[in-house]
Every structure is written in C-alpha cells, then in structure tokens.
Design a binder for these strands. Structure first.
Lengths: 213, 213
DNA sequence: ATGGGTCTGTGCTTGATTGCACAAATGGGA
DNA sequence: TCCCATTTGTGCAATCAAGCACAGACCCAT
C-alpha cells in the first residue's frame, strides 16, 4: 500500500524529475529504441537507477521485471501523470525581444503547450504579429483569459512590471506562471497559483562559484 | 567552528540559493533600501528566515544582531563568494533564433557575464552580426576559447548537435556550460565541468501536474 | 521444461536538509 | 543609564530524500 497510485502526497521534488524523464524518453524514441531500463536512464541522466524506479513506482508499476520499461508506454503514462497528454493554451505577456523569441520558439507545441495570445503595454507593438499572433493591449488580458479558459501564462516583461502583471493574471484566473523576468514574484495570497522561474544568470552564477580564478 | 568560512564542503543546494538572495538584494537596493533582515528576505522569497541565516552563516557573519544586514555589504560579499565580482567572458554557440535572442539580451552584463564570441555551423550565418559580435565558424571554437581564456559557454543549437558541441567545448577548456537545448548532456568523463539547463517546457510540465482539468 | 541472467518494486538504512528555539548582541527611547 | 524590542548565529531535533540490497518476476536459450 505504500505506493498507492492514487496517493496525492507525492513530493514536489519527484514531480520535478518526471519532465526530465519524459524528455529522455522522447530522445530514446527518436533514437529508435523501444525498451529501456532504470539503469540506462540513470546512466544517461546522472541519477541512480534506484531513484528512477522509486519515483516511477509512486504512480504504479510501469515496468516489467527482467525486461525494463516499454518506452512508448512509459511516455504515455508520464504524460498522463503530468497532464501533458493534452494541449494547454498559454498566454504570453510581453512582446519585446524576449517575448518575440518565446513567441517564435517552436519547441512548445509538441510538448503540450500552445501560445494562444500575446499582450504588450506599448501601443507601438499592439497589432504587430509575433509567431503568427496579433499583439493585444494589456487591457484585454482579463477578458481574453477568461473567455478562452486559459490557466497558464508566461511573463516576459521588464522586472519592474512583473509583479503588477502577475496580479492581473491571477485575478484573471491564471493558475500557473512561468516568469522570465529576473525578479521574485509574490503570489502568497493565493495558494493555488504556481510559479516557476527562468533566469539564466542564476544558473551561470551558480556555476562560477566552483570555477578557479 | 562549525561555520568555518573557509570550509569548502558547502552543500550545492545552498550555493544554488545564493544567486536568488543576490537578485533579491539588487531589487531592495533599487527600491532604495539600505538595510534588511533575514525575516524580510524570507518573506519576499517564500523561504524561512532560519534557512537564510544558516545559508549565509556558511560564509561568515555578515549581519548584525538587532539590526540585520547592510544590503550593499551583503551584496558585495555574496558577489565575492559566487565570484561574480568580476566579469566572465562567455562563448555562445548557435546563432539561430534562440542564439540571437540570447546574444541581444541585455541582462547579462550587469550581473557578471559578457558574451565574448558567437559561433554557428551554418555558412550563411557566418559573418552576420548578433548583439554587436560577428558570427564565427565552428572550426574556430577551440582556438578562440583557448586564446581568450574563456571558461563559460552557452549552447543554443538544436538538440541533436548539443552533445557534439559539448565535447568540442570541453576539449577546448570550457568548465561551465549553460545548455538551452532540450536534451541531457553527458559530461561524466570530466568531473570538473559543470552543466546547468534552461528548458522552459520542463517548468511548465512541472506545474500542469497540479492543475485541474 | 528448466536454469541462468536480468531487472523491477520496495523495506530499511543512511544521509542530507530544514526548522525550532534560544543565548548573545545591538540600538533606541525613556 | 537602563530596559525593551529586535535580530543574528547556531545546537539540536525533526523531517525529508537518496541509496542499498534483495525477493520475486520475467525472458531466453538450451
């Protein structure tokens, strides 16, 4: 009973590894593999095989003793667990250089996400086209998000506007925010809103600690 | 003695939080503050104050009882610890959409990093200008990196070429890699090479797990 | 049909990380 | 001057995460 698949007390750190496993499985599929093992996955990812088995066992037994895991089946199951077996509409806020890059990035579509609308505060940018979408004014954020039932957003505005944008988004019903602005967002008022961060400098600074001179 | 500042057995997870603290301190400075406390920082970052105090205490006593931390002083000390009190030259590999966005991003310079050169395999892109730099051919990676003493690189090439690029970089003497390609890199042959990843989809997938329908 | 090699799922141990709680230090106001 | 409110740095306890190691299951070759 320790690994009841319906158990919803799964550590967040485990959830965080599942997308990594999924990415590695995509890769194996592209390489033409059909079966893999916790040992092979672990070697590729630099993670112990025991950890991979234990992580996966939280959601049920997806493998077969003596054989390993059917890649296609495991991918399907992980997509179900992560709820990326569907396509999520995403709102993009900010149509500057960064917003343009995100809007034109081709890597979202086949992994469960579709940029559905884009907003900017600058009147000169409104009406322009980014990744096939027309830039809308900020005033339309709430109505658009509500009408289209969007739950996921990405913030690509300057740091000083990110908190205000966050509050607009949360009020509009957004439940998951990926923040590209180099600033911490306060969503402590809402315990059902999730925030993740993209800040390349954080990662670089983390590595320079270990470098010599 | 438990918190000997010269101790180099500091957990990686602690190092990973220091850039977050530094970013929050930058922000406080911009807001005109001069002094802060572990409690205030913790509230802003959603971290317990005890953890912040303990993390900082690994490197010495930077605060004053009853008062808190002088922001400018703590920023300086954290920059020293992370070695971002200097400017690191960074090689950028890949001059496609993503490489262009990175090359034009203004957020690196004032946080310790300077893109010093950019490379691409596509002959049509060679000689073009990205962020004020001329795109060089891949064949020049090793000589350029060696001559200029570059230790940090960012990979912005398609996933299928990322591993080969990694090996070229490591052979050229690169010690820290920030990988934007959605694939895991194998650097297990070299234990002095650090890798960090930027993959927005990973963060999105991690959040959708918690969303309803 | 059977034996040997392989691999999963998991109980238990070990190790790492976080949080509590308090002594000591500080500064400002009465 | 002295007291009170505040805040740091840290020993200790509690919680959380990772890894070992093995029973049971599976496949394949003979």
């Amino acid at each position: 009973m320790a690994s009841n698949p319906a158990n919803n007390n799964i550590p967040d750190i485990v959830i965080g590894r599942l997308p990594v496993y999924l990415r590695a499985l995509n890769r194996l599929t592209q390489e033409g593999e059909e079966v893999t093992s916790s040992h092979e996955l672990g070697r590729r990812l630099g993670i112990s095989s025991a950890q991979i088995r234990k992580d996966l066992s939280h959601f049920g037994g997806f493998g077969k003793q003596g054989t390993g895991y059917q890649i296609a089946y495991l991918e399907e199951k992980l997509r179900q667990v992560l709820q990326v077996d569907r396509e999520w509409k995403v709102a993009l806020i900010g149509a500057g250089d960064l917003g343009n890059a995100i809007g034109n990035y081709r890597g979202f579509t086949d992994r469960g996400f579709h940029i559905a609308c884009i907003f900017d505060a600058d009147e000169e940018k409104i009406g322009a086209t980014v990744g096939g979408l027309t830039v809308q004014p900020m005033a339309e954020i709430e109505s658009t998000i509500r009408e289209r039932g969007i739950q996921v957003a990405m913030i690509a505005v300057p740091a000083e506007h990110a908190q205000a944008v966050t509050e607009t988004l949360v009020d509009a019903g957004i439940k998951a925010i990926l923040n590209y602005a180099p600033i911490n967002l306060d969503v402590s008022k809402r315990d059902d809103v999730h925030v993740q961060y993209i800040d390349p400098v954080l990662h670089l600074q983390r590595m320079t600690y270990y470098l010599k001179g």
